[in-house]
Amino acid sequence: MSFNDKLGKFLLIALAGFSLLMLIVPSAIIVAISFTEKAYIGFPPSGFSLKWYSEILNKQQLIDSAVTSLWIAFVTTVLSILIGIPAAFSLVRGRFLGRSVVTAFVVAPQMLPGMVIGIALLFFGAYFGIYQSNTMVIIAMTVFCLPFAIRVAMARLSIMDSTLDEASASLGSSRLGTFFRITIPQMLPGIVAGGAFVFIEAFDNITVALFTASPRNRPLSVELYNLVQFDSSPIVAAISSLEILFAFLMMLVLARSIGLDKLRV
């Protein structure tokens, strides 16, 4: 290897190492700070205590907003799967005129910033006299997340073997049996991965929620948005750490279902 090659290799590894550190370190710092004993954020964090975590439990407003967010995420996930999975079947296996146009249409919301989807629904609702509410957040989130569910399911379907269904049927299995024993289990990793992705996105997305959430019954992301600006206590770090933990759990689900290297944004 020439000197230039060595320099190139060194630069490559240095830059890659720097990027990886940059991706990990900020979250690690937040987790470290969340265990501080002090009443303010400081670095290095001093002592070790869980008092900021127990402080979360003392704030009813935070608990309420977390419950709201879980509910929003749950309904959004169910809706996205119920609408998205059949759609994926049709788009991968169906043969009809204008299939590519329909595909482009159903994944289109992903090309728009969440803010625009939120504002569009806010205006649309206002025009008909409907105001911000959890229902509006759920609808906006479903619009925003549906493309994820459809694309993950489509990717799964395109590698699935449709002859297995026919084999099962010809070997004497009932149609009901074939559907539940062959088609659904084969599809399951796609459903689980898509669902996990939708759930986490619907849980912590802020750009859509900010415009569609009602000022009273706020989801956790909107609550956190205010806390981040006006509360300097480590309680924000504690909430953030829980969200980071949650992200890791969802990543495990993704890794077990379709594998991390199959994930496409």
Partner: peptide, 27 residues
């Protein structure tokens, strides 16, 4: 679902027409 043509994707089209396309036009 399996053999289907456009059928299973229709709920998605309707949903996105009302809650995505029309709101965008209003915006």
């Amino acid at each position: 679902i399996l053999r289907g043509g456009i059928g299973p994707v229709i709920p998605a089209i309707i949903f996105l027409f009302f809650f995505f396309a029309m709101p965008l036009v209003v915006l």
